[in-house]
Amino acid sequence: MTFKLIINGKTLKGETTTEAVDAATAEKVFKQYANDNGLDGEWTYDDATKTFTITE
């Protein structure tokens, strides 16, 4: 399955995708991506669209 991450950061904005077997796996990938890029914010997830959002 394809999951999307929408980034609404103070300095970084955009989106990225990952292929994962489930939402929990995708969340780990996206949280590592956010950590690697210095993002810290509030996370939301929409199961209907398989989309995570981080807002700083």
Rank of each mutant, 00 (worst) to 15 (best):
20 A>L: 03
56 E>T: 03
6 I>N: 07
18 T>F: 12
52 F>L: 01
53 T>H: 05
35 N>G: 05
32 Q>F: 07
12 L>G: 13
50 K>S: 13
47 D>H: 08
45 Y>M: 02
13 K>H: 10
51 T>V: 08
9 G>E: 04
12 L>H: 08
38 G>I: 05
36 D>V: 12
3 F>C: 01
7 I>P: 01
27 E>P: 00
19 E>K: 11
40 D>Y: 09
51 T>A: 08
52 F>R: 00
16 T>I: 14
28 K>G: 09
35 N>H: 14
42 E>N: 10
26 A>V: 02
37 N>W: 08
8 N>F: 08
23 A>F: 11
38 G>F: 10
24 A>W: 13
55 T>Y: 05
34 A>R: 02
55 T>W: 09
46 D>K: 06
33 Y>H: 05
20 A>Y: 02
56 E>V: 07
52 F>A: 01
55 T>K: 09
25 T>F: 11
54 I>N: 01
19 E>Y: 12
4 K>P: 00
38 G>M: 13
37 N>E: 11
30 F>P: 00
29 V>F: 10
20 A>V: 07
50 K>R: 12
21 V>E: 14
54 I>Q: 01
35 N>R: 14
19 E>M: 11
16 T>G: 08
4 K>F: 05
17 T>A: 08
51 T>Q: 05
16 T>H: 12
41 G>T: 02
53 T>R: 07
26 A>K: 00
28 K>F: 14
50 K>W: 07
11 T>F: 15
38 G>C: 06
11 T>Y: 14
14 G>P: 11
56 E>N: 03
24 A>S: 05
39 L>F: 13
13 K>N: 10
2 T>Y: 08
6 I>F: 11
55 T>R: 11
6 I>K: 14
39 L>N: 03
15 E>D: 08
25 T>K: 06
30 F>N: 00
39 L>P: 02
53 T>V: 08
45 Y>Q: 01
51 T>I: 07
8 N>G: 04
30 F>W: 03
10 K>C: 04
35 N>E: 09
35 N>T: 10
24 A>K: 07
30 F>M: 03
36 D>W: 06
47 D>A: 13
51 T>M: 07
43 W>C: 02
8 N>S: 10
52 F>V: 01
50 K>E: 03
27 E>N: 07
9 G>K: 15
18 T>P: 01
46 D>S: 06
39 L>G: 02
28 K>E: 14
19 E>I: 12
14 G>I: 12
46 D>I: 12
52 F>N: 00
40 D>L: 09
12 L>M: 10
43 W>T: 02
17 T>W: 14
14 G>A: 15
26 A>F: 00
11 T>Q: 14
3 F>T: 00
1 M>C: 05
21 V>L: 10
14 G>V: 11
21 V>Y: 06
12 L>Q: 09
21 V>K: 10
2 T>N: 14
52 F>H: 02
52 F>S: 00
39 L>V: 10
5 L>I: 02
16 T>R: 11
24 A>R: 14
41 G>Q: 02
23 A>R: 12
16 T>M: 14
13 K>L: 15
16 T>Y: 13
9 G>P: 03
54 I>P: 01
8 N>I: 14
8 N>R: 12
46 D>P: 00
8 N>C: 04
33 Y>M: 06
15 E>N: 02
31 K>V: 09
25 T>P: 02
29 V>I: 11
13 K>C: 06
51 T>Y: 03
35 N>S: 12
19 E>H: 12
24 A>C: 05
15 E>C: 04
26 A>L: 01
39 L>E: 02
7 I>F: 15
18 T>W: 07
52 F>Y: 06
54 I>K: 01
15 E>S: 06
9 G>L: 15
20 A>T: 09
2 T>D: 08
15 E>K: 03
42 E>I: 09
12 L>V: 10
15 E>F: 09
35 N>V: 12
17 T>G: 04
23 A>K: 12
5 L>H: 00
15 E>I: 03
11 T>E: 10
1 M>D: 11
32 Q>N: 14
12 L>C: 04
45 Y>H: 02
17 T>E: 11
33 Y>Q: 04
1 M>S: 10
25 T>W: 12
13 K>E: 15
9 G>C: 05
46 D>F: 05
24 A>F: 06
37 N>Y: 12
25 T>R: 12
10 K>Y: 14
24 A>T: 11
53 T>P: 00
42 E>H: 10
42 E>L: 10
45 Y>P: 00
33 Y>K: 03
53 T>A: 05
41 G>F: 06
24 A>P: 15
10 K>W: 08
37 N>R: 13
3 F>H: 03
19 E>L: 07
23 A>V: 10
34 A>Y: 03
34 A>S: 06
24 A>M: 15
7 I>N: 02
33 Y>R: 02
8 N>D: 13
53 T>D: 03
